[in-house]
Design a protein around this nucleic acid. Structure first.
Lengths: 285, 285
DNA sequence: CAATCTTTGTGCACGCGTTCACAAAGACAT
DNA sequence: ATGTCTTTGTGAACGCGTGCACAAAGATTG
């Protein structure tokens, strides 16, 4: 799956392994489907198949939540839906703001999967003044100037960043400063955040690259893997190669100017950031 | 990671660990940024910071590719860009089709991160006849009827599914039958595919749910964690609870009837499919 | 050429996650 | 009640991934 994991050292918040937490939404979806079909109970085998995992893994996952099954019968669907929802915190309302209303931001705003799980789009924010007031998914877009006010007034603690890479860190800093403690980042940049803030990343091109790797392995044993295997290249091949790989500039932005702290260095501090400007299409990575 | 990992048993294609493969795109992005700033070399420490990982991990990752560094100096940026690109298979052109041109599909079509890494959008496909011919991102949308022809003529091996959940499995089957061997799935459904086909999943709401879990843990020790901890619920709480958790139907759809191998066999029964509710406005595939 | 300094590459240990396999628990039939 | 059958819950083994720590390698300086 989309990759998206952060570099946080797998906190294992309260006994439940991180890997298990990541699968709970999967189980919940399958269970919800069963619930709608009025299926009263499921065995671990059936549910595991529906969720696409191993049944032993599923049982172990559930064992971290408690003993919510009946031996010889299986799990009560409705009860399990409730327990998992509660464990994930979906029994409460989560106001969310989406920053960067390009194609992707608009798609997210329209995405039905949010509302159906307790996530409510509290506001849409964009830096383009021309967007201000325009309704997207029935919600008027507000200007970035309002960001702090919106966060504060709506009590938002989860922010979604769908801006171009160049603007992401800046937006992130403002969100965090305003009180947001969880961020879902769609911009192709590594965000630095202070401790206590969770970041999850979704990078569409990364997923494709991973697929390409496996794809290459499938058809690709007969390819040109011979000559260029271990040759020391001319030190000045630079431009040519770069042009081949990435003809269009990527401009991940100077934000990634490594060299900050010794290792991690999550510096919420200033970020000159330079030009980001463009918000034309979607994340011109 | 957004997650998005499939249930394939981590094939470790050719010695390179799956976890390492998943990080290579990360390194590549950071390196590309350095390349554009004309930085000749980087140390593992610097690059690791830019990519948001541990430096020891980075060095070990690179060691799987070969000895591409110079002790006392670091790594040649351009050379490393080339090596990683080649390893990922990005030195060749990958035609891609996107099926389901709703908000999300359109966002993907416009996404710049594809073209800049060797991925070329060969075609856009949608089931809505009204969409046919309409240009999105400069590419005319074609009707689903053309799917097989397009795949065949363009030699596409990677497909992106951005349809509603209810249509995903059907589209998937047709893609696979037409020769696609790698699928990036944005629909909230578990796809069943034959061996040899790779599936990676990106589920936006899953990422948010994971964030919600951690968010709950942060502010939430003083919450209502007492009373409803281990109570055996009335067996008929069903509807009420379901309504609370998921007011809008989601209907991940029975499409997930894995039922291929022996272990799978989940509810092979008929699938009236019913209302797929979720993702109404978006993705009218 | 020798000494020193920097940084890579990796052996090793540890912890997490996955999977197997089975005893315990309950349902159900007789 | 007793026995059988199904399915859970989990102890234990295994394998992968991560991070430490250091020797080896090369640059650099005197």
């Amino acid at each position: 799956m989309a990759t998206g994991r952060t570099h946080r050292p797998a906190t294992r918040s309260r006994g439940i392994p991180e890997a298990t937490v990541a699968r709970l939404p999967l189980y919940l979806r399958a269970l919800t489907a069963l619930s709608e079909r009025s299926v009263p109970t499921v065995s671990s085998e059936e549910l595991a198949a529906a969720a696409g995992v191993n049944s032993a893994k599923l049982r172990k996952d559930f064992s971290y939540l408690g003993s919510y099954g009946t031996r010889g019968v299986g799990y009560d669907v409705e009860y399990l839906v409730y327990q998992i929802s509660r464990e994930l915190g979906l029994t409460q309302d989560w106001p969310v703001v989406i920053v960067g209303i390009g194609n992707l931001g608009a798609a997210l705003a329209n995405y039905g999967g949010f509302a159906s799980r307790g996530f409510r789009v509290a506001a849409l924010i964009d830096a383009d003044p021309a967007m201000a007031g325009k309704p997207v998914a029935g919600i008027p877009v507000q200007h970035t100037d309002q960001l702090e006010t919106i966060i504060h007034d709506s009590g938002v603690s989860i922010g979604v960043i769908a801006t171009p890479a160049g603007a992401a860190q800046q937006v992130c800093d403002r969100l965090v400063a305003a009180g947001v403690t969880s961020i879902l980042n769609f911009a192709p940049t590594v965000l630095s955040v202070p401790d206590g803030v969770d970041v999850r990343k979704v990078d569409l091109s990364i997923e494709l690259q991973i697929l390409a790797f496996h794809e290459q392995r499938k058809n690709g044993e007969e390819r040109d893997e011979r000559a260029d295997r271990d040759e020391r290249p001319p030190r000045d091949t630079g431009q040519a190669v770069a042009a081949t790989v990435a003809p269009a500039a990527e401009a991940a932005g100077p934000g990634a100017n490594a060299a900050q702290g010794p290792v991690a260095g999550a510096v919420p501090g200033a970020s000159p950031k330079g030009p980001d400007g463009d918000v034309p299409a979607v994340m011109p990575a």
